[in-house]
Amino acid sequence: MEQVQVKDLLEAGVHFGHLTRKWDPNMAPYIYMERNGIHIINLYKTQAKIQETGEALRKIAASGKKILFVATKKQAKDIVAEKAENVNMPYITERWPGGMLTNFITIRKAVKKMAMIDRMKKDGTFNSLSKKERLQVDRQRAKLEKNLGSISDMTRLPGAIFVVDIKREHIAIKEAQKLKIPIFAMVDTNSDPREVDYLIPANDDASKSIECIMAAVESAVASGLAERKSDKADKDAKSEKSTAAKKEVKAESKDDAEVEAKAEPKVEAKAEAKAEPKAEVKAEPKVEEKAQPKAKKEAPAASNEEE
């Protein structure tokens, strides 16, 4: 991730805060000065926070988790939608659906309903409906697409959320806090920075400022995804090598087994050939020699009885 220059932040108007009477005292560390009743944000601190936030977002993206981008204000919605699509991340730019995170199962059912309507159109079931029913289904599909189309690929809770204007998106912030999901945000001088885990002190009302910050965020997420891709490629290469090595070992062991199998019968045959003649030679003479003297002794005894 490239470091954002203070000059670029200045040109984008990132330093312009809110009116001094609307400020939040907790933003005091990030305010440089007051001019014409408006607070000026310290851009050196903004630069440091962009670097810190970008590093954290890069790690989350590299781990394979999704980052949900939230921006429903007019100036930010198109910019955020474009940047999120570039890195293939889910986003909410229309009204925040209540329970989007805390009641995620119900939201997933609505997304599945959208997929079911698409299947009906493909398999021809949709054409068998009456004209009135087709109109109702089309309207329902359009409504779901508008509100939830951008999160159709989000099959589980996100690893983090990135918010533009935490005052406007307070419901999203509360839900993320309840589920202990890390919160990243652009925070202006009228907001409380304690509500988020990683803040970027910046003007969240001007489209140029939002564009500048979101470009840096997109770059961080893209580098995380690229890192994950390269790690995956390395793992695949290693696994291929290990499988090839295992195959080689198996082939070698098979060859060795075949060689042993061929060699063993010859050894046995030789052993049998050597053992058999010895047994025959020793056994036969002993039996004959012992049997003959007995026969000679028995013969005279029989002749005495007859006499």
Rank of each mutant, 00 (worst) to 15 (best):
D118W: 02
R119H: 10
R119E: 15
M120P: 08
K121A: 01
K122A: 15
D123A: 05
T125Y: 05
T125N: 10
F126I: 07
F126D: 01
F126L: 06
F126G: 05
N127C: 00
S128P: 01
S128Q: 12
L129P: 05
S130V: 08
S130N: 15
S130D: 15
K131I: 10
K131L: 11
K131V: 11
K132M: 12
K132G: 07
K132L: 11
E133F: 02
R134N: 06
L135A: 15
Q136N: 11
V137S: 01
D138L: 02
D138R: 09
D138H: 04
R139A: 04
Q140E: 08
Q140F: 07
R141I: 04
A142V: 06
A142S: 14
K143Q: 12
L144M: 13
E145V: 04
K146F: 08
K146T: 10
N147S: 14
L148N: 07
L148A: 05
L148E: 07
L148V: 07
L148G: 05
S150N: 05
S150M: 05
S150K: 03
S150P: 02
I151K: 00
I151L: 03
S152I: 10
D153A: 15
M154Y: 11
M154I: 03
R156Y: 06
R156N: 12
L157Y: 06
P158C: 10
P158S: 07
P158Q: 07
P158H: 04
G159L: 03
G159R: 07
A160Q: 03
I161R: 00
F162H: 02
F162Q: 00
F162Y: 10
V163A: 05
D165L: 01
D165S: 04
I166R: 00
I166A: 03
K167V: 10
E169V: 01
H170M: 12
H170I: 15
I171C: 00
I171M: 10
I171E: 11
A172W: 02
A172C: 12
A172S: 14
A172Q: 06
A172D: 07
I173C: 08
I173E: 02
I173M: 11
I173N: 06
I173L: 15
E175G: 07
E175V: 14
A176F: 02
A176M: 14
Q177D: 11
K178A: 14
L179A: 13
L179G: 09
K180Y: 09
K180H: 15
K180C: 12
I181W: 12
P182H: 13
I183K: 08
A185C: 10
A185W: 03
M186A: 05
V187T: 10
D188P: 10
D188G: 14
T189C: 12
N190V: 13
N190D: 15
S191F: 08
D192F: 09
P193E: 04
R194V: 07
R194G: 00
R194A: 12
V196A: 07
D197N: 14
D197I: 01
Y198S: 02
Y198D: 05
L199C: 04
L199T: 00
I200Q: 00
I200D: 00
I200R: 00
I200M: 00
P201L: 03
P201R: 06
A202H: 03
A202Y: 04
A202L: 04
